[in-house]
Nucleic acid binder design. Structure first.
Lengths: 356, 356
DNA sequence: CTGAAAGCGCTAACAT
DNA sequence: ATGTTAGCGCTTTCAG
């Protein structure tokens, strides 16, 4: 899949190969023990600050361990404990800002609590997601945080985790019928508020651009959009509801489609900032002024929205809040060795900038 | 560090806790063997497709393994083999597009070759980088790909990896004096070409905005900038060389600073697209027209550059090419159990859009 | 407070 | 082609 054009690259110098440094000199607790003339179990205890070890011995051991450059072998430790201290994060794609920011923050939080993080991309493919779960079990990860693919309806492949006693938490995107712990955004409210904001600024003909992704979160947004219109006694026209691609160019196309309508909108809500920016780009090339002629609101608070002009008004889903809740929910389950069925809803918030 | 405002969140329902599913029912090769009345070593061989096993038996074993839902215990396997099949990627920060894209592509490539990926963020702090290396050794990762912090001059902490026989490759940012394998961009040429492009479009007073980061790559860009000016007999003014922050707002500030100069520039090269976009934003608010009055070029080919207007002309560093080379260099070392000292230089390429 | 014994699940090496 | 033996480095359990 990944095709690389090696012609673009030039090799500067190829210096030399040398045989691998002789291994086998890996220091273990037994080495530390032997040096000190004590038993390796005592070393193990001392280094982990568990059990009863004379303070004096403990200090001695730690000093010697450092001196010898002893590095605990996690592979052995995790194997022995039947569980690693690795947390897995599964996302559809790491590149969109929402996910890269979530993962970045999550790693920060996890690290502070002493966990490492493995990341997996499902590429929006449920089959891949299943493979990932399998390998997660192989690694005996301590816990899993996942945002499922657009087509993941069933939770069945996650059941395997449950069987292995590996807790998991869904964030942002959960399977439709799951009862597992989850941290979601109130997407209905986000869309509802966004439409209401446009109405408040005098707009009356509000369109909605979504992706063709059939995931719950998009249906919730659509529902919020419709409800807001209903509550304000504004007609809902099927012509003004478009479902298409995921990217900027899709936004441009759909904006064009909308503006060519006889009865064209004066406000557009897009389910992603990137789509919204495409909309703005189209509107500007067609000499509409924003927000005077047409208001635009997106979702995600992608920094890209600050690059464009006017700066994009957007529905923000607090990522630190999602990370904090996801992590806490997961940690709780790990510590207590229980499976929780808890659901947290994050309030979205409109970030007002220049497009409404 | 991560402060979460839980007031933003509302807990919808807390359903119930239930005791962890009884574990201990984990299926091992011995279980499979017992069921079949054969030895577990044969099962091991069959499942790994190694050694001599009668085809008939192999099929039988695989069938039974599947039936029992056997999942190989990676922890045990890796422990036994003294090496995991995990590759580590170390970056300063996962959020900038350049890194999230690199990591995303790298994971894709690694997965196809049967490796999993652990990711670490150094937060531009060398101390953290050292801790990460230590933990990498603990995990006995198969290999490491790293882009170092802005302040990493020495390679000493990476030496530890060498001692453990863990190969590593630097990409984009390498320690100054390393001889290790590395995949770098010709930053000198990137800056040189960018300046030359501006000169070709008639600009004569070209400024340079960098970060205060003292890493080699930024010095190379500065050198390329200067050389291009020299080669075109254009004066180099210290007033036109600014080193400051890393973000959009820094770009705005610095642009302001430059344009308030008596003798102000008609072209600006920024070392990051985000900075360049800040520059553009300032220039537009001050009613300069781009590129007529002032040309702007950035580095990174960040998609953000397409969101702004005019769309940003940028110096692209082919990420698929960097990923391909980094991975191949690493894999070669893993397979051959050798340490290579190889250096590959990627040619940057200017993506012409609307700002020059 | 410290030591001895045992074993986690898997695989290399050797034996049959 | 299959079985036997042994051990990776660590920790838990029990004994002293």
């Amino acid at each position: 899949m990944m095709t690389v054009n090696y012609l673009e690259c030039s090799r500067e110098h190829f210096i030399f190969i040398r045989p691998k440094t002789v291994m086998g000199d890996t220091i273990t607790i037994k080495d530390v023990a032997r040096e000190l003339g004590i038993h390796h179990v005592t070393v193990s205890r001392a280094l982990r600050n568990t059990g009863a070890v004379k303070e004096e011995t403990r200090v001695l051991i730690k000093k010697k361990a450092l001196e010898l450059g002893y590095k605990p072998n996690r592979l052995a430790r995790d194997f022995r404990n039947k569980r690693s201290n690795v947390l897995a994060v599964v996302v559809p794609d790491l590149r969109p800002y929402f996910f890269s920011k979530f993962v970045s923050d999550f790693m920060e939080t996890a690290k502070e609590a002493g966990y490492s993080v493995m990341i997996f991309q499902s590429g929006e493919k449920p089959g891949m997601e299943k493979d990932i779960i399998d390998s997660l079990i192989g690694y005996r990860v301590a816990g899993v945080v996942a945002s499922v693919t657009k087509d993941t309806v069933q939770e069945s492949h996650f059941d395997l985790l449950k069987e292995e006693g590996i807790p998991y938490v869904f964030f942002d995107r959960a399977p439709e019928e799951t009862q597992a712990s989850q941290v979601l955004v109130d997407n209905f409210k986000g869309a509802y508020d966004a439409v209401t904001a446009m109405i408040a600024s005098g707009k009356k003909r509000i369109a909605y651009i979504s992706t063709h992704y059939r995931h719950q979160i998009f249906r919730d947004r659509l529902a919020g959009y419709k409800q807001a219109l209903r509550d304000h006694k504004i007609e809902i026209s099927p012509d003004w509801i478009i479902e298409g691609g995921f990217f900027m160019k899709d936004g441009m196309e759909h904006a064009k489609q909308l503006m060519q309508l006889e009865h064209c909108p004066d406000g557009i809500l897009a389910v992603r900032d990137e789509i919204a920016i495409g909309v703005i780009k189209y509107l500007k090339t067609s000499a509409y002024s924003i927000p005077e002629d047409i208001a635009v609101i997106g979702f995600d608070n992608d920094p890209m929205g600050i690059a464009c002009e006017p700066e994009l008004t957007t529905v923000q889903q607090s990522i630190p809040c999602m990370v904090g809740n996801s992590f806490e929910l997961l940690l709780q389950q790990i510590k207590q060795s229980t499976i929780l069925f808890d659901k947290k809803i994050i309030e979205p918030k409109i970030i007002y900038r220049g497009t409404v």
